[in-house]
Design a protein around this nucleic acid. Structure first.
Ligand SMILES: [Mn+2]
Ligand SMILES: [Mn+2]
Ligand SMILES: [Zn+2]
Ligand SMILES: [Zn+2]
Lengths: 156, 156
DNA sequence: TAGAATAGGATAATGATTCTTTTTTAATAA
DNA sequence: TTATTAAAAAAGAATCATTATCCTATTCTA
């Protein structure tokens, strides 16, 4: 975890940005909640717990900066807010998402799966792919009744 | 085109909604601009040309209704506005998009391409897929310089 | 240290979307 | 047809997420 912060710090420095205390607190929150898909407001509230003096605008500015640096990806699941997702280190593709229309849970798929499809698209459409966004909407494994488990989870 | 409006009309009626003049004007605008990815505001301005008395809120309500009925799909390319895309008639999957990071153009892929991937996801993640969203970001064929065509297009 | 650049805090402004209230229109019953 | 009722629309206020502004604080440089 510390090493990860260090690497992000280096990345900031390489573009002549500084890892200020506020930025570090924000990054820590993101790292500590890597499983989740936090909105700017979510991040703000969590950062406040450890650095109560931080302002919402700073969180927005920091998230924007981290997005530019590709440390996080900004995504939108159609609920009116942007969410920020830490990019898996070393992965050259953005991971995919499974959004459950029953309970609202958002699960992740780290496997690429799109290799063949991208080849087809690049050749068939003469389009140079730099990034992708893939989200499936459906019923998650927790919401299937076939296993008798009626627990609907708390969602995301 | 008329037949398409008729079918949408039937679809509305089957849920006991009416195809009011405002709704019809909105649907016509969507049909006439099927290639584009209009925001609510875009639709509003276009509808105004033929039905100047329509209100913006009505356009929003209509688009929401059409989304519910799966006549259109609401999508978000990350530019802060929702866009509304007429669902291809008879297609059981939502089409994919190519967003050019150079000129902003949005092209469509009507081919499914995801059949195999979805099978893997359904089995590997025990997730029942109902819908999907797939967008590629990259350089479109118009923005490639290798063909010597420097026309950057007008974007979307 | 003085001056410049970078960043943060507070809050106003913006812009998209939704809500509320009132009016209009359409459908139905007498 | 006329009164009744419900659905839908118009207008504009309200909300909510996000961005801009203005000023202060911090860091860097000469
Ligand atoms: Mn994720
Ligand atoms: Mn489309
Ligand atoms: Zn679920
Ligand atoms: Zn292009």
């Amino acid at each position: 975890m510390e090493s990860r912060i260090d690497r992000i710090k280096k990345q900031l420095h390489s573009q002549s940005y500084k890892l200020t205390p506020q930025r570090e607190a924000t990054v820590r929150v993101l790292l500590e909640n890597e499983e989740d898909h936090l909105s700017a407001e979510d991040v703000y509230l969590l950062v406040k717990e450890k650095a109560p003096e931080i302002g919402l605008a700073t969180v927005y500015r920091t998230l924007e900066l981290l997005t530019e640096l590709k440390v996080v990806d900004k995504i939108n699941f159609g609920d009116g807010v942007s969410r920020y997702d830490l990019r898996t280190e070393g992965a050259d593709h953005f991971h995919h998402h499974l959004v459950c229309i029953e309970c609202g849970a958002v699960d992740e798929i780290q496997e690429d799966l799109l290799g063949d499809v991208e080849k087809v698209v690049e050749e068939g459409w003469n389009f140079k792919i730099k990034d992708h966004r893939l989200t499936f909407h459906g019923i998650c494994h927790r919401c299937h009744s076939d296993d008798g488990n009626e627990d609907k989870g708390s969602g995301e």
